[in-house]
Design a protein around this nucleic acid. Sequence first.
DNA 1: TTAAAAGTGGACCGCTGGGGTCCATGTTTA
DNA 2: TAAACATGGACCCCAGCGGTCCACTTTTAA
Lengths: 152, 152
Amino acid sequence: MQVSRSLEYAVRSLVCLASSRRPMDLGAIAEKERIPRAYLAKIMRTLVRGGLVSSTQGRTGGYRLRKPAGRIRLLEIYMLTEGPSKLLPCIGDGGSCSASASCSQKPVWIKVEQAVNEAFRNVTLKEMLPKKTNGGKGAGKRFEDPLSQERG
Amino acid sequence: MQVSRSLEYAVRSLVCLASSRRPMDLGAIAEKERIPRAYLAKIMRTLVRGGLVSSTQGRTGGYRLRKPAGRIRLLEIYMLTEGPSKLLPCIGDGGSCSASASCSQKPVWIKVEQAVNEAFRNVTLKEMLPKKTNGGKGAGKRFEDPLSQERG
DNA sequence: TTAAAAGTGGACCGCTGGGGTCCATGTTTA
DNA sequence: TAAACATGGACCCCAGCGGTCCACTTTTAA
């Protein structure tokens, strides 16, 4: 049960964006994080569609976060890159299990899945940022509240 | 992030064994759970090696649990069928990550992985058994303590 | 004593999906 | 108007999972 490489790349890229006070373009992220450029492009699209980052096209285009890092949960990134969780195929659509209704195992699996989801929800991007060891050298707050337009 | 079919089959088979007061042979389990016989054979081997079930060979051979269902945790089955968890390849061997030592994300991933493991550890086979609706018709205790020789 | 019926071990195999590439196209600015 | 960016989608490769097969061992029933 490994996490997809897409998720790993997505997280790294988002951390990258969160650590930069300016928007970054694809090439910059790809190079810094050593991610295949074309593949990263595909991933960034899903992050854009998912509303985690906003993109500007054109010559000076690039990406930036749409929320402060503290409000982006690992679960969101997870659900964008991989689908909704579904530990087992029988969970969710409510019918693919041959044992059907009276299956005594299904509720337990659901419980496990919820716990796993909780594990991912409990982590926020902010916790993954590199610790700033400088005592506030000037680039002080970065991404804390300047983008709090989205308080959903 | 789905769980392997092997794990699903393993769980179903163990539930099957736990629900039966007598040992069951491969064919019986395979038929009842509708699992491909040869594939199940492979899975049962790993369960035997892992010490969850004991097998007797020969003509009247079969399988039985080695511990009461209440003492078999989902995590054990998980670790037998799939390897040790490892959400990301960089976790565990301590070096495959290009960001090496100062990686600020690794500890967070480790934390997530521990939570996931906990989710699997928190479930015991017993919780997956079908609820006995009979008020103690005779086959009362089944697998509760008759096998408590192994109290590790 | 021997054949049937059970488990064991391991080689093998097909196919799916994740990881990755490529190209054509839209958009912005120097 | 061309360079530099993002977007969309078709396409490809291959490791690994799910599954099969066969040769072998062990036990018991006849």
